[in-house]
Design a protein around this nucleic acid. Structure first.
Lengths: 304, 304
DNA sequence: TGGTTGGCATCGAATTTTTTGATGCTGTGC
DNA sequence: GCACAGCATCAAAAAATTCGATGCCAACCA
């Protein structure tokens, strides 16, 4: 009779039935309200009676009275269902209130060209966001998969089956010369290019710049006079020297201020894009940040 | 595919499955833990995926990763299930902390003889209880059924099918005389009793004292010289007069201080008891109060 | 006092949901 | 490239829920 039913097999619909019966003081009308048979309501209330070990509702004279315990349970049930509903509702993402952590992995290029604007906009629209920029160190994919970063911005090569990606724009390569360099004024052909003394930016990790890959594909090789891990300080290296550096065009706007910029004769380009994992694919914050970055780069995408 | 499942048909067991999968990072081991088939876990998680419109768990390389939304949901799910468990658990009633309202209906007799001790004990053990004593006005049953009172203490007559009851003790009737009254010293027989001038305590409502009912049953009638609604002030009415009052013995200890008390020749007694409704039958507070009152009257019950 | 009625309880049948066991599929590690 | 781990999926079985009909009880009415 008073067999102990595991409380866990109560569902929120049962609580809903309880609330309606309590509200309407009638099994029959609650059943109508819920669009089910009266005996289904009876069944549900009986189950709840066993779960709570309490009569919940008793008939007194004409009307149905709720026990004190029932009153209590109804109040809690309303709260629990409301909270669960809210939990189940598609999270109405509000940038203004998010206070989550968000980590972006990227490298020098993106830190100089993309990140500042992102940070500015993000901090403006989501002031409480705990934003962190980490160095991808040429291992962006790995860091994504380890959940060390929520989003990777960088030059994307192969399409990794584990990652989602979205391209932002393509960037051509240009060569940086000291303005006094003999080849600095004329258009540069491939033959001349190969004769120059090059500063090679390795970008640290396993990354190999697209123009290097392209040259290799053609069976050619660069005369590398100096290797540097990043374009930081590149300007002062090239200035006043015979060295030539090949870097993405957009980067030259930043680091090539007083240098001569000439189109690179190796016709290829690097694709800058976003990458993320399935874990974050549907996360509202991640989606929102992705969308924002994509929009911020709309101009660059159109070749600006 | 993304069909919208009503969140209300999620039960707490499903949330439990979610929590275990999250904990163990494995459908299979969660299934073992829960003692069900792996495909049942898969089924449940799939249902939750539809409810929450989120993958919840994604496989990445070797391991199962939880989405950010999932992390959030798990935290909430733990809280909700814990709260529901507590709600479903038989309420471990603690008098020290109850702060409910509790209303006792009774009449003059009980207010004088029983209530003071009850109030004292109740306030001692349940300091936050909001206790209210209301006058039954001879309509105690009615007030109970209307939930105006949680408990009725009084002389119980017929056994009302709607009410539960528990008897406390029985009280015989005694007669109060002015000490100077000629009949005050000797034992009183029925013949003399009927010749006396009586003060009849009506107790207000529909109540008829048991000795009156008994006399009636014998076809006898009292010479009523004065009717008063309650024993309040009875002492001063009887003192210095020829009038005789018949009241329950225990009451005479309070209101008959300077009067002569003689056993009433109508051999009957009134039963004082508790009455309550089904609504409160299983309510812990009500049960606790009932038990306490019963214990407090243990002495009286043994004829003290 | 007996008939009528409103409303919850209960029963067997029908329906729906959940579980099971078997099998498929995909990515990993050797 | 093969074997394995582990989730997905399928059909059948089991269990839970709902339905429609009916029972039953108390209240109300004449």
């Amino acid at each position: 009779m008073t067999k102990s039913i595991d409380p866990l097999e109560v569902d929120f619909r049962a609580l809903q039935v309880l609330v309606w019966v309590h509200q309407l003081r009638s099994f029959t009308r609650a059943a109508e309200e819920l669009g089910v048979n009266q005996s289904a309501v009876s069944y549900t209330i009986n189950k709840l009676r066993e779960v709570f070990r309490d009569p919940l509702f008793v008939r007194q004279a004409r009307s149905l009275h709720a026990t004190p315990r029932c009153e209590d349970i109804v109040i809690q049930a309303k709260r629990l269902t409301a909270e669960f509903r809210q939990l189940a509702a598609p999270p109405d993402f509000d940038p203004g209130t998010v206070s989550q952590k968000f980590t972006i992995a990227c490298n020098f290029y993106e830190r100089v060209l993309i990140i500042p604007e992102i940070v500015h906009t993000l901090k403006g629209e989501a002031p409480n966001l705990q934003l962190e920029i980490i160095d991808a160190s040429g291992r962006g994919h790995e860091r994504l998969l380890r959940n060390e970063a929520d989003l990777l911005i960088g030059p994307l090569e192969r399409s990794d089956p584990h990652l989602y990606r979205r391209d932002l724009y393509q960037d051509r390569y240009v060569c940086l010369f000291d303005p006094a360099h003999p080849k600095a004024s004329a258009p540069l052909d491939l033959e001349d290019y190969l004769k120059l003394d090059h500063v090679l930016v390795t970008y640290g990790g396993h990354w190999r710049s697209r123009y290097i890959v392209e040259l290799e594909r053609m069976g050619l090789e660069l005369k590398v006079a100096l290797k540097v891990p990043s374009p930081a300080g590149l300007e002062r290296i090239v200035a006043g020297s015979r060295l030539v550096a090949t870097i993405p065009e957009r980067l030259s706007k930043s680091v090539g201020a007083d240098l001569r910029v000439v189109t690179c004769p190796v016709h290829t380009s690097v694709t800058i894009g976003l990458a993320w994992t399935t874990v974050n694919h549907r996360a509202p914050l991640n989606m929102w940040v992705r969308e924002m970055i994509y929009r911020l780069n709309a101009r660059a995408r159109k070749g600006g």
